[in-house]
Write a protein that binds this DNA or RNA. Sequence first.
DNA 1: CGGGGCTTTGAGTAAACTCAAATAGCGTGG
DNA 2: CCACGCTATTTGAGTTTACTCAAAGCCCCG
Lengths: 258, 258
Amino acid sequence: MSQPLVPGGSARDGAPPGTHCASCPLRSLEFFRANTEEEIAFIQGLKVGELSLRARGDIIREGDVADRLYTLLSGWAFRYKTLPDGRRQILNFLLPGDLVGLQSKLFDRALHGVEALTDVTLCCFSRDRVWEIFRLFPQLAFDVTWLGAQEESLVDDNLFSVGRRSAAERIAALLLQLYQRASGLRNGGGGAVRLPLTQVHIADALGLSGVHTNRTLQALRARGLFDLVGGMLRVRDVNGLRELARAADIPPESRPLI
Amino acid sequence: MSQPLVPGGSARDGAPPGTHCASCPLRSLEFFRANTEEEIAFIQGLKVGELSLRARGDIIREGDVADRLYTLLSGWAFRYKTLPDGRRQILNFLLPGDLVGLQSKLFDRALHGVEALTDVTLCCFSRDRVWEIFRLFPQLAFDVTWLGAQEESLVDDNLFSVGRRSAAERIAALLLQLYQRASGLRNGGGGAVRLPLTQVHIADALGLSGVHTNRTLQALRARGLFDLVGGMLRVRDVNGLRELARAADIPPESRPLI
DNA sequence: CGGGGCTTTGAGTAAACTCAAATAGCGTGG
DNA sequence: CCACGCTATTTGAGTTTACTCAAAGCCCCG
């Protein structure tokens, strides 16, 4: 199921393969905070390569001693946990710019798995030298902490939903979240974004069964709140969704990128 | 409902009030990683006072612009979110040594509340100077990140439980977690620890109703897995609990303290 | 044209919920 | 020392939301 590592580009002259950080397509989005030239050069030095995987590939397996840190460059992924009998809970979705593997790197084992939702490319940092960030670039270390806290706040929200919202409310809250995150990355325009999830992914993220998720999605669609077909989400009534989810409208902050 | 700040001790000679970091009772536990003298002196310098609150007091209110960072010195607390109609979800419990307010400090608002479960004392850091940690003490900055990630992993687990475990399994998993965390702090001995939660707290943490939590607790008690009376948890069958929760047995790592 | 994966529908079931009221504990004041 | 009030726990009864099992329909791709 897991795909092999594919070098992202030529490694001529000892330069790391793949995208060059200074010309990283993500950096051009105003969604991300700018870094100094020095910082970018340093990050570039930390980068040892790229990892490309097909959809459904394992980025980190549960229980792995995978002590690698990545940044997701393109594609979507998700973090999850499973029980021995196969029940799976998706903890949160990962979009380009998100850090992958911080927890696994900090503790000795991966307490959760990470799987590619689409074909993905990851920027791969030096196993041994990552923590130089802390010694040499306090601002970047701060950014690592920020990104970690940001991810936690996503998980907080999901837990809130799963614990205390009805099926319909959960779906509304999740779609709003993903719509907002994807929009920031210009994953579409005019109220429509690409959502590469199956209904089962949604179910597994929301603690619901696939069947019930399907019925609830249909009911919401019928209420004219959104359309979700062929991997495209078109939000028809943002306020209706927000009201249903009773979600606060928090304008997206610009975020760091490492 | 919220109690006023009570100075933790005399502030004679410009020395910060309250416990002196070097003689912090938590540091003597082998559960916590040792720090260098320099680090302790630095932390001491960052400490501007102590905050003492009664049980049920608000440490951080949802939506606050409370940009303070604390360490919980004594007592228990919890992070939570609520919906306008009163539904509440507890995200995780906080025990002595846990950092409080990292997220609220990092973002502009508190996206969750923090409430005291028992009478608590918090160690209170300088609003403005906390981030000096990153510039001056990389190791401590790393520790902040570690503690953040640690908390996230608690939330991950709770989300996993709430999303995919049955009521009985959730309770087993939660009691195991709290038993393990409290044991590390010597909150009791011989299989029994003090658990200052009501059944409603357990319900709110697990996404259950109070009534159902009560019935499920009784059923588990009847199966001889544990006793939970008068705020004391006595675990009678750890393996039984673990099997029920299908929880991995992860030996507690020693953790940093700031 | 034939899978394989995803979505949809039907029918019966079960886990957990709500409402309501009784009981138990505990600290305070008469 | 007991009554009172407050909070927390317990019990009963009926309901609902979401689940399971099973099968059919879709749709894309080879």
